[in-house]
Amino acid sequence: MGYIKVDQLSHHFPNGKKVLHDITLSIERGEFVVIAGKNGSGKTTFCRHLNGLLKPSEGIISIDGLSVAKDPKKVRQKVGMVFQNADSQLVAETVAADVAFGPENLGLDHREIELRVNQALAATGLRKLADRSPQLLSGGEKRRLAIAGILAMRSEIFVLDEPFSNLDYPGSRQILEQIIRLHENKHTIILVTHELEKVIAHATRLVIFEDGALVREGKPSDIVEEVEDFGIREPCSSKLGHGISSWLN
């Protein structure tokens, strides 16, 4: 069936350069998909198609039966995006106001917004920081706030673009734990990265991009040993022949 269905997706820039070609992929509800590839392999562009921020040059994407091209508003409600740069996605003057931004866009009433904001802040451990300015948060807290903003919109799917970039060790741990919790709570996770080490143990599927094409997909344990062919570093434990183990241990 396919919860997220990507069918022969291609994208070219106005100057004619092809960044994605002929991508077909089907993702089931509740999966944890890791998309890996070198810089410039088209991962980020692919993500932006998932909630209609870009229009396919060719091909169709549908999410839970909704066409992304025809119904971007509804799709965006279902698909939350955590962008690579945490600083330029927080929009409001305080943490609480930022979480409320999405629900306010949906035109919800106050009681509902307050409820959702409180739940989202509790789920991301940011309750104590509710009145803080986003600028004063640590890198890990900023990313968690971005996740809280999506939780408050009750999105089912989380698309995270390089969620560990620019984070220190504690920050990375916090985010990874947060993502694992989201997955346990039945959210579908699509995580884009060029370093597999941190996430591979928790993924249900690994997808590899190269030069705008989908070149491998399958169970992480089946294809992890091939990744270095595509310019991605193989996780240490796998390299040493110990299989895949969680980065959190």
Partner: peptide
Amino acid sequence: ETADRLVLAMESRCFSENRTDPQ
């Protein structure tokens, strides 16, 4: 550049001018 990224982030969070008014 920040502004351009911000536009994407706001669109992905369903920015709409018919927003809930403050209470």
